[in-house]
Design a protein around this nucleic acid. Structure first.
Ligand SMILES: [Mn+2]
Ligand SMILES: [Mn+2]
Ligand SMILES: [Zn+2]
Ligand SMILES: [Zn+2]
Lengths: 150, 150
DNA sequence: ATCGCAAATGATAATGATTATCATTTGTAT
DNA sequence: ATACAAATGATAATCATTATCATTTGCGAT
């Protein structure tokens, strides 16, 4: 039961998990660490699974799925349904925002528009609906140099 | 090879299909008819399949899926990805619009907000993106009398 | 540090939606 | 009416995700 390295860092995550009502386990700490250190904020279960494999931090695929759902329910992660059929997750930093997804390179950019939010609320209440949630995805070409198309 | 009934109606659909570059077949005419006569505009493959079964107009499930995809590519239908994992289709009436979906009864209401459209365009161009498409779904409680939840 | 045990994990089977195969049927141009 | 490419339908295969269940692990109480 050697404790190897960064106890301090894992301690912080342990507390983070405990606060969320989840017991601190190795797989959960690994997934949480990945989200905090990964270059891309938005990742699918498969992304997580493969990244963990690549660093030798093996976690079963079923466990990855379970943890993602638990983290979502605990409010640690937010789930998105981009086109393509698979769920994508990101760390919940508390601020709601919408997304622009490049159809060529998959790059995701975040934005927030107060006017859009207000008009949505208006559209719903005008029709007698009470908004629970909403999702706005803009699919586009990013036109960046490193982007495959153009 | 009896021609039974409504030749006039089927003739119109035949032309409709031909114009879309699709040859006029019985399954395609049935699916198109269903969309034009169904009470709910927004339907999944399974919905279509079961409705056709219920009227004795049997069409294989694989064929339903193929036809929906073909109709989408031909511009006859529009596909939506509401939460829940399954694609939903509606007749393409040419006018873009967004959707409010009741989380309790599944009722779908359509709306269009010019301001939202413009702000989306702005958000994208400000970041150098060229919009190809976008999807905006509002999930809410409809608060109608006939709705299960209150 | 050691126990005890509920909770978590992981290998794998199962599910649900959708697509691929391929033998048979059908629409259509001749 | 004939011929043949295209479409259909039964079914297998695929993909993402969830369910099972035997084994392992975190953690509170000794
Ligand atoms: Mn985001
Ligand atoms: Mn609609
Ligand atoms: Zn790009
Ligand atoms: Zn409702």
């Amino acid at each position: 039961m050697l404790k190897i390295s960064n106890q301090g860092d894992d301690m912080k995550k342990t507390d983070h998990l405990k606060n969320a009502g989840l017991k601190s386990t190795l797989p959960r700490i690994k997934v949480l660490s990945l989200f905090e250190s990964a270059e891309q904020r938005h990742m699918s279960a498969e992304d997580i699974y493969k990244l963990l494999l690549s660093t030798g931090d093996d976690v079963g695929l079923a466990t990855v799925y379970r943890i993602l759902t638990q983290f979502e329910q605990a409010g640690l992660l937010v789930r998105h349904f981009f086109e393509g059929g698979k769920s994508v997750f990101e760390l919940n930093q508390g601020k709601h925002h919408d997304h622009i997804v490049c159809l060529q390179c998959g790059q995701v950019e975040e934005f927030y528009d107060q006017a859009i939010e207000e008009r949505q609320e208006k559209a719903a209440t005008e029709r007698g609906f009470s908004i629970r949630d909403h999702s706005l995805y803009i699919y586009a070409d990013c036109n960046k140099e490193n982007c495959p198309h153009r």
